[in-house]
Simulated scan of single mutants.
Amino acid sequence: APLSDVVLYCVCPCLKQGVALLGTSWHAHPHCVVLVRGSNPAAPRWHHKPLLEQAATAVLKNKEARNARIMNKALMCAALLMHSSSTTPKLFSACAQRFASLMRRGELNGRVLVRLAWATAVANQNPDCQVPAGQGKAATKTVVRPFVQLLLEALKDKSQSIAASKPLYGSLAFSLRIWAVTLPSLKVPQELVDLRKKESHSSTVSDTQKVVTRILGSTPSLGLHKVQSEVNVGHGWFVDITATGAAGVKYAFEVDGPQHFAANDSTVQLGNTAIRDHCVGKLGYLVVNVTADMLAGQGIMQTNKSMADKQTLGAIKNAMAVAAGKQQ
């Protein structure tokens, strides 16, 4: 999408948050950190790889831009839209060391820490940090510690304030679900385990998901059995539909709407969807993404059931073939 179609929400030393930059204005402030979205802050995310790469590289090169707010924005943006970029690990490594110092001094509040946890978990990053071996001025030696463990210790200290906000403990629970799979030996403080238990799974099954479930269970040619909807496959990960195929292959079908992809490119998964698939895959399932682009439109589903079923079956077969190809 051309830059004139998006608003770049920026935070940098020379601009106020929320200033709209279009066209050449971007080049005047190369150290800005960008979140690329639609003109509405709540709109779906836009994907513009060259611009994102430039912004991430600018943060790496410009120490002036490394305050907590800018780094947090940069990491969240990288997790959401740059999860396949080679720049992302470098960005997290550079920012983690700075955040480790801020956490040691107790300068980060619960909201910032939860957002940092979300970005770190979604991007599947855990860089090592050099931290003092002791407390106070007497701590002259340093030791290497994983960033996520340092982050959990800081979150523990803010657990009471986080517990008072459902969006915060819900976001933290998502991060903990990720780490339960990607970092199974991670030592999670009991205070955070209790926070995770506060989260409840709310299942809203869409009409499209119901159609896909019905076809999966009523089409012998697919060779599937034990078709179930809204299944907890482990560590609180709920899958839209599960089924067992030939040779005992366990399938996890996810019926993904547009909100799971970049608004301007339906082939680009958002980071939170990509890490979901990664975690479910590590739990022993072959993830099959049945996307809105593959399925029959709602109009056809309502007016011509047989045609809609035929198109949906074709979409399912295509999605299963794509998933099998990725596995190989």
Rank of each mutant, 00 (worst) to 15 (best):
L286G: 06
V231Q: 08
A243T: 02
V268Q: 05
G281R: 10
N264L: 01
V249P: 00
V280K: 00
L222T: 12
K305M: 09
A247Y: 05
L216A: 14
S203W: 12
F238C: 04
H225L: 14
A263Q: 02
S202M: 09
S229D: 15
L283M: 02
G314K: 03
I241E: 02
I316N: 01
M294C: 10
K317A: 06
A263P: 02
M301P: 09
N318K: 15
I316W: 04
A323K: 01
K305L: 14
F238Q: 03
D194S: 08
M294W: 09
A296D: 11
V193D: 03
T273N: 11
N318M: 14
V288C: 08
K226H: 15
A262Q: 00
S203F: 14
N289K: 11
K197N: 03
V290P: 02
G223S: 08
A292H: 15
V288P: 06
M320P: 03
Q311V: 02
A324W: 07
C279D: 00
G217F: 09
K317W: 02
V268M: 05
V211D: 14
V227S: 10
Y285N: 07
S221M: 15
H235L: 11
E199K: 07
G236W: 01
L222E: 12
L195F: 01
N304S: 10
Y251L: 07
A323I: 01
V268G: 00
V233K: 04
K250V: 07
Q259F: 10
Q209G: 13
V249G: 01
N272E: 12
Y285Q: 05
L286V: 14
N264E: 00
T303P: 12
A323Y: 03
K198Q: 08
W237F: 15
V231W: 11
G281A: 12
S203A: 14
G284H: 10
F261R: 01
A296W: 08
V322S: 06
Q259R: 07
D277A: 05
C279M: 03
S229E: 15
S218R: 13
A296T: 14
G245A: 09
K210G: 15
N318E: 15
L283Q: 00
H225N: 15
A274K: 07
Q311S: 02
Q209A: 13
Q209D: 05
T219D: 14
I215T: 08
V212K: 08
V211R: 12
I275T: 12
E199A: 12
K305S: 12
V211M: 11
L270H: 00
L195E: 00
Y251K: 04
A246T: 15
T204Y: 10
V280Y: 01
S306N: 09
T303C: 14
S202R: 06
H278P: 06
G325D: 14
N272M: 06
A263W: 03
S206W: 06
V212A: 10
D293I: 08
L270I: 01
T303K: 13
A315W: 06
Q228A: 13
N289S: 09
G217H: 10
Q190R: 10
S206H: 12
T303R: 15
I241A: 06
A252F: 02
V205W: 13
D309M: 03
I241S: 05
L224K: 10
E230M: 04
Y251V: 05
M294D: 14
T244M: 09
I275K: 05
I300T: 11
V249M: 07
V205M: 12
P189G: 09
Q209R: 13
K210V: 13
L286N: 06
